[in-house]
Amino acid sequence: MSEHMVTSPEVTFAHAPAEGTGRIWKIFWLLSFITVIELVLGFGLAKHWYGDPETSHTQILFVKGVICILSFAKAFYIVSVFMHLGDEIRNMIMTIVVPLCLFVWFITAFLWDGNSWKTLRNRYNGKPAQIEKIIPAAKEKGAKD
């Protein structure tokens, strides 16, 4: 047993209390900085990339991708430092992080599905269903079925 406070008999050793609050404030400034960058990029999108008519759909999509990655970085720092998951032992971290990998499929599959709906709707909306007409091959005279 370590001399630090032990919260329950199940706990083998308590984490040594952090020396200071330096790390907390560092992460606070980092999160604020990332948020400001996100806002600058988001404001650019709001003004259609600061009023540039040449901006293509791909460029807009790229900026949105960058914003998504920055948000994941924020999520990582909140979970790892503020929630202290980074200080837990490895087995514990894995039981949380591994199930969350399901999100990779979850996001990909469902956005793909939504996009597929759009494609199908645009193809068929307002048009009568087109039934392919297959012309049966002409029967030979005298041939029996």
Binding site: E10, T12, A16, N91
Partner: peptide, 22 residues
């Protein structure tokens, strides 16, 4: 000291949390 404690501990032998958390 925490690193040493981790090496000496048999996490899955019962009686304690294998995740070292309540």
């Amino acid at each position: 000291s925490t690193v040493a404690a981790q090496h000496e501990t048999k996490w899955w032998s019962g009686g304690r949390s294998p995740f070292n958390a309540s």
